[in-house]
Design a protein around this nucleic acid. Structure first.
Lengths: 225, 225
DNA sequence: CCATAAATGTCGATT
DNA sequence: AATCGACGTTTATGG
């Protein structure tokens, strides 16, 4: 990893065109070949970057300004850095990273809800998780207290896209006479107002899930609402 | 901006739980208070980070290991860094960045297409951009050569989602007798095959836009196809 | 401040 | 290569 602090201007030409006026910035060269240009704010996103694979060509302007031209191997995208003044330049050997271990994403929510399917209502029974269809797996398929089939779409954040997704599943599932009629439940930790409106318009029920509460329930203690 | 290269382990507890085993990494402290942890790969994406506003508390473990606890002001998210060995530590004054100037994003495409609405066909006239509806603004509303209302959904990359979005608008607009019948046009720099199929199925026309050509047209010279 | 939509989204799995 | 869905999405914009 090479760290350069320098006054530079940047021009990107690729998926869009972008320009950064001359100013002091951090240039981050990683071992994977990627390059990113950071200002002194925003933790996550650099001002400009180039993904690997890419190559750097160093050259010099008429007036002696150093120019680094970064070209992406496949797409031909280009990043042109004009380097006016280097304040710092150091290289460090880091080695391969053991990597990030994550916990608590949608997969876990699905497990929990499948385990506590009565969260959706009294008498609910699980048919199966990841019920396969031609257009992809339905997160959870179950039956309600009256024996009707229910398709559940699960999200951490319930957006309008999720409702569309569930709508497609319902349309498909309802063509199967052995399942039809299939009801829809849109379940998420948080459901956006627009998603709620669209779901209501399509006759889809909305359920907000409390992750901590679900995790806290004893496996054999169904919770009633 | 402070650059630290150190062997560290990281624990994040917030929207999810995540752990990074002890390894050498770059710690990037920015002037806005944000912190990011980078490995020597994964392009510009940090392994872990904390957005401002957040505060750092330094402490020491029983066995003398330095511990930096980063807490997010609002959400209470936490990032705990255990620092074993510092290889490098330098601070640099960068100042405020003039910022990135972009060209070629959807907003710009919309301006250009509105200005050259006859790109869609001879006789087209603009009604307005960002035509408001209950479920969000239609990118462009216009009339074709025969006086029919046309709703245009604009994307840089035309995906299936965009067709769904336009479909929702059309359904709503067609409930208004003063506008109905409203045709749909899906316009993008690039339209994915599936999006094209779905659009055709819904009677929506597809138009691929040439950004450079649009920009090159003289304002008062309509282009005919 | 909340809600929404765009993004050079990125990333991974699957076909 | 294309598609699909998740992401601690992040970021910008408008109310």
């Amino acid at each position: 990893m090479r760290l350069v602090i320098a006054r530079c201007s940047v021009d990107y030409a690729g998926r869009l065109t972008a320009h950064l006026p001359m100013a002091p910035r951090l240039l981050l060269f990683k071992a994977d070949g990627s390059i990113s240009v950071h200002a002194d704010d925003r933790a996550f996103k650099p001002l400009n970057w180039m993904n690997p694979p890419c190559s750097v060509k160093e050259s010099t302007d008429d007036d002696g300004t150093e120019i680094w031209t970064v070209t992406h191997g496949k797409s031909g995208e280009k990043l042109v850095l004009r380097i006016e003044e280097i304040q710092h330049d150091s290289t460090h050997a880091l080695g391969a990273d053991p990597g990030l271990q994550k916990d608590g994403v949608e997969a876990h929510l699905q497990e929990l809800l499948a385990e506590h399917i009565t969260t959706l209502g009294d008498g609910y029974t699980l048919i199966r998780r990841e019920y396969p269809t031609a257009i992809g797996p339905v997160d959870i398929l179950c039956r309600d207290g009256e024996g009707s089939t229910v398709a559940v779409e699960l999200k951490r954040r319930g957006d309008i896209d999720g409702v569309e997704q569930l709508t497609r599943y319902l349309e498909l599932l309802n063509r199967d006479p052995s399942l039809s009629p299939v009801k829809g439940v849109f379940a998420a930790q948080e459901i956006k107002p627009q998603a709620r409106v669209l779901a209501a318009d399509r006759g889809i029920a909305c359920v907000t899930l409390d992750y901590d509460a679900l995790r806290g329930i004893e496996p054999d203690t169904p919770r009633l609402f």
